[in-house]
Design a protein around this nucleic acid. Structure first.
Lengths: 153, 153
DNA sequence: GCACTCCTGACCAAGAAGGTCAGGAAAGTC
DNA sequence: GACTTTCCTGACCTTCTTGGTCAGGAGTGC
């Protein structure tokens, strides 16, 4: 139940690309790495994965770089996380809907399904456009408004 | 963003203990392992962790075994997951409230906080008593009622 | 032709995941 | 007191993941 460095990096780099979308010119990997303080060579691997998933595009050579394949308001955080981390909320590496629980843990499946659904309500709602503008969907506002949400446990 | 085998096992074993709470007698590790089809020796390590976190108690020897340290309706899934997996929804191994994001990813912190909060709304609501009775809190019902929640993406 | 930038695979160290093994230490029974 | 039972603990193991680095190849633009 943790967010990997890779996923964090991927979203941050994508946020930079979203912000640069107006410029109409590719952004170099180096600039992304500097802007978000990410090891360049590691970032290049991540960007490649995002490219393979159709989230970003790239061109080589002088004047080359990366850009978003789609408008920033059509790319969700969930997509990016899935691209680099794989499916969200799998249990023992299998999707919760495929697991069969017996005995007294019969209803655990519903709990894991609910866990996944709750993650989706956040990650699939927030787009890169939301992220860079700071105008996050109301669901985020509701979840973060309580003081309690900001303290560890 | 995945649930480990260890966490899954821990919850399932705890569910068995919750169901056996009426019996007023300790449950052997072996019986738990068989009931939930968990490798016994691995399970013993897990139960030991749960014991160290004050979730279960144990006694050795003949007539020994494990039992819940508290009533089943006072033990949440969140507690069990934390006991074996550590803090929920950490980013790069640090709690989201401690991360500082710069540039265009400034609002990413709020997103991760929301992610954690949404996990908490499920995991901290569901108790072992809910789990074994099948009467899950309304939040779970709402999240799992949609057909969409049960399909992969 | 040359500089620039992405693309790709190989490699690597450390840690986690998912266990197994062997023995020790309480608790109860005879 | 011996013996069985069951938990307790640490050591160990294999495989995979994480978080990178390195070296070179392949397009692209001038």
């Amino acid at each position: 139940m943790r967010v990997s460095a890779k996923a964090d990096y991927a979203v941050r780099a994508a946020a930079e690309l979203a912000a640069a979308q107006a410029e109409e010119a590719p952004v170099k990997g180096e600039r992304l790495a500097e802007a978000q303080d990410i090891p360049l060579q590691f970032l290049e691997h991540i960007l490649l994965e995002l490219k393979h998933h159709g989230i970003v595009r790239a061109r080589r050579g002088a004047k080359g770089g990366y850009w978003l394949a789609r408008p920033a308001d059509e790319v969700t955080i969930a997509e990016i996380v899935r691209a680099v981390e794989g499916p969200i909320a799998h249990v023992q590496s299998t999707p919760p809907e495929d697991i069969e629980y017996r005995g007294n843990s019969e209803h655990l499946q519903a709990v894991w399904i609910a866990v996944r659904a709750s993650l989706r309500t956040v990650l699939e709602q927030v787009t890169l456009a939301d992220l860079v503008s700071g105008e996050l969907p109301s669901v985020v506002g509701e979840l973060t408004s309580s003081k309690d949400a900001w303290v560890a446990r």
